[in-house]
Design a protein around this nucleic acid. Structure first.
Lengths: 210, 210
DNA sequence: TCCAAATCGGAATCTGCATTCACTTTAACA
DNA sequence: TGTTAAAGTGAATGCAGATTCCGATTTGGA
């Protein structure tokens, strides 16, 4: 809605200004600067690193420093911290989605599901400081997460059909397992890592035996 | 260490001041005021309520308002927000400890364990907004949590001995389950409640079959 | 009922960010 | 190489919430 209104106005403006075009040559959209393009990636990388270290409440200042840039530069393209967090979230979701896609390829549904869950566990363990925060801001209507949810659904069905999981197990059960593992990992004290592998094995046994 | 030094100084001061006691009648420790005593409880109650509603980042202002008191009053006996959170944490831990004690009484170890876990699940679901924050600040050397940890250990052993749980299941596994359930419940969107009962049932199946 | 210590209240102060802005630097294009 | 729009900077600003302070109230005790 907002976007449409926006472009409508722009069009209108163009048309309106047509009569008196004098002060400046129409428009020579200059090519985007190299450093600008480069910094875009640098900022997201820095954000990932800093969030992983300090959690989602890390200051914009710290991210800017890590990126070797001024805070203002970050604000030039990300409206605010939320946008930055969203960008990182989308990026990481993509990684998980690919893991799900790969798991679906596995000829053995059970092995595929296990592999996927191991990946998610390790992934969250690595990003335990802010994984929950990111997951929380992923809207259900987000393109990537919808796609991933669909993959998990198919993965689950295949595993059930293959007899790897009990009949009444649904994708919701798998999602709950993922969320719970994330919680387990996030609660681990700084030094040691949570026993999420064992936890996963045990829960899978429950899902098989149900 | 700090405490010891403190009391040592106090003792020293007392002794030192003994020689010249003149300006004021020794000491007439007045009885604590009624309102002060009453407010102590009022503050903690308000804190519980507000934290449950807004999470641990609720402002001191909001807690004071809810208690019908000024912020200053809260600071009179709680050094700061942390102390308030600690106080609430200790209070709630007590409740869980009692549930653990009750579960140990159950003649059927398996039923006792199940009952305890159901209690913990419901308990965390009710306090999902701040349960994690509280758990995180419970020091391992805390008296209550040590006691509870011990109860969980015994509860687990009894269940294993009774054949309800697989041989290799340890108290660590039960603790992990509790933490994971908390994570599951905490992640649930505002309206609906997480399917922690089903999750618990499935995991228990895994712990039995292992 | 009166006095003074113990409390209360809540405005004022202090802090730690997020976000903005006026100014400087850089790179694209002629 | 000169011109200029696009980018970059980081100090200044705004704000929200924790903590402090001190005059106004209460309550225990004589």
């Amino acid at each position: 809605m907002k976007v449409k209104l926006h472009s409508a106005l722009r069009t209108l403006a163009t048309v309106t200004s047509q009569p008196n075009r004098q002060p400046k040559p129409p428009a020579a959209p200059r090519a985007p600067r190299r450093d600008a393009l480069r910094n875009d990636a640098i900022v997201i990388d820095a954000a990932r690193a800093v969030f992983a270290e300090l959690g989602p409440q890390a200051s914009m200042e710290s991210i800017a420093t890590r990126a070797g840039l001024g805070v203002g530069t970050i604000y030039r393209r990300f409206p605010g911290k939320d946008a930055l967090l969203d960008a990182v979230a989308r990026l990481l979701t993509e990684e998980i989605d690919q893991a799900a896609a790969a798991a679906l390829e596995d000829p053995d549904p059970g092995a595929g599901l296990e592999r996927f869950l191991e990946f998610v566990g390790a992934f969250n363990a690595e990003k335990r400081r802010y994984a929950s925060a990111l997951a929380a801001r992923l809207a259900d209507d987000d393109t990537v997460s919808t796609r991933t949810a669909d993959r998990v659904l198919r993965l689950t069905r295949k595993a059930v059909d293959a007899g790897y999981l009990a009949r009444d197990v649904t994708a919701e059960d798998i999602k709950a397992l993922i969320v719970a593992m994330r919680g387990l990992v996030a609660a681990a004290p700084d030094g040691e890592d949570a026993p999420w592998r064992r936890f996963l094995r045990i829960h899978l046994a429950g899902l098989r035996a149900d």
